[in-house]
């Protein structure tokens, strides 16, 4: 994780998400995936379009992480969740709700925020 060198595809995704213009990649056969992609992992095609990320996702599973990696020390404890946005799922940190109120089925939106420990970009779910 160098400060200078960008991660093509990934950094652009976060910048777009921060601008409220989150997207996912859709191959010409309709399979959703996350960047960077040159080949669809489902069908192997190489043509993609950027489609708007659905505004609402549903929490499918979650955990309260109490022992974090050093890069997340100041963030702990935090809730990590997998949320289903339809064509894709995302993994993010749940903010804006008490940890014991996070539940499977909770409806969230994905936003770009920062990691408390390092200031690195962080995918965050907030209740909607």
């Amino acid at each position: 994780m160098s400060d200078e060198t960008r991660d093509a595809g990934f950094d652009e995704f976060f910048e777009a998400l921060a601008d409220g213009e989150g997207y996912y990649l859709e191959c010409e056969n309709g399979h959703g995936s996350l960047p960077p992609r040159s080949v669809c992992p489902e069908c192997g095609v190489r043509e993609f379009t950027e489609e708007p990320l659905p505004v609402a996702g549903e929490v499918e599973t979650f955990t309260v992480t109490r022992v974090a990696m050093p890069d997340f020390e100041a963030d702990e404890p935090y809730v990590t969740a997998v949320a289903d946005f339809g064509p894709i799922r995302l993994t993010g940190q749940v903010r804006g709700v008490d940890h014991d109120e996070v539940a499977v089925g909770m409806v969230v939106e994905a936003v770009a925020e920062e990691r408390e420990t390092t200031g690195d970009p962080l995918l965050v779910f907030r209740p909607r």
Partner: peptide, 24 residues
């Protein structure tokens, strides 16, 4: 690394996600 570790997923955290999903 891009889509899990940078979201704070630890190894126990990842299995906790699976365990919670299993319980559900």
């Amino acid at each position: 690394d891009l889509w899990e570790v940078r979201a704070g997923v630890t190894f126990p955290g990842a299995y906790a996600l699976m365990e919670q999903a299993y319980f559900e």
